[in-house]
Design a protein around this nucleic acid. Structure first.
Lengths: 113, 113
DNA sequence: AGCAACTACCTTGCAATACAATATAGAATA
DNA sequence: TATTCTATATTGTATTGCAAGGTAGTTGCT
């Protein structure tokens, strides 16, 4: 799947994005990430990340009963989290464009331009 | 600029891409990255990365005189390096599409779909 | 000659983070 | 009872970008 090193920094922003769409919980985020095409992201990745985001006041949590298992810890974005998500988006697009520039240039065999 | 965590994993592939276009050297790579929109990447990032790639047989080096300064260490891709670049490209596109899926979904305020 | 600025390379140590491995536990099912 | 799925959490490790520092050649200015 996608190499872990390539996810660094990106994953955090993506989780903010997922939470911004709708209040959700760790286990559910793992499932959503897989649906979006990130592959199976380990729970040992997600839970520490969520705790970190919570500690940094990017998200807040509340427990809710589930009908099919143990109770779930649902997260929502704080204002700080929304700002951070905005920030992530801008930076991601910046990087994404830089890489596109490079890869396009490469495909074009741009030796003499 | 682009957060350092977001460059992890990506930078290595990008440097392979730059070298694949044309034999080049560390200091020149720093300049090219800036032109492509990556911002000023520290030399303390590039040189260890190049040494690592060389040790892993992704690139090979030879020294050439420069007319304007100390002699330069020019790098080219090995076959292994080309494979690795191919690999990077595939994985980058995979990630890039996953993030796009997510960000588009978010912009669309997809609460009820 | 002396000095600054640019070019060019390298090393050390640190910080951030994805993840494997492991642990815990409730609920459903066989 | 045992297993599987759901669900959260912790510990330790590996990777890697980068700040900080060092070395050295070349050029141009004074």
């Amino acid at each position: 799947m996608i190499p872990s090193q390539m996810l660094k920094g990106t994953l955090e922003g993506c989780i903010l994005a997922i939470i911004s769409k709708q209040e959700t919980y760790g286990y559910g985020i793992v499932e959503q990430l897989a649906e979006y095409g990130f592959g199976k992201i380990a729970e040992g990745t997600i839970y520490p990340l969520l705790l970190r985001l919570e500690k940094n006041k990017m998200i807040t949590a509340r427990y809710k009963q589930s009908e099919i298992g143990p109770k779930r810890k649902y997260y929502s974005l704080t204002f700080l989290g929304m700002e951070e998500l905005q920030n992530f988006t801008v930076n991601y697009i910046k990087l994404s464009q830089a890489v596109s520039n490079l890869l396009d240039d490469m495909k074009g065999d741009a030796v003499d331009e």
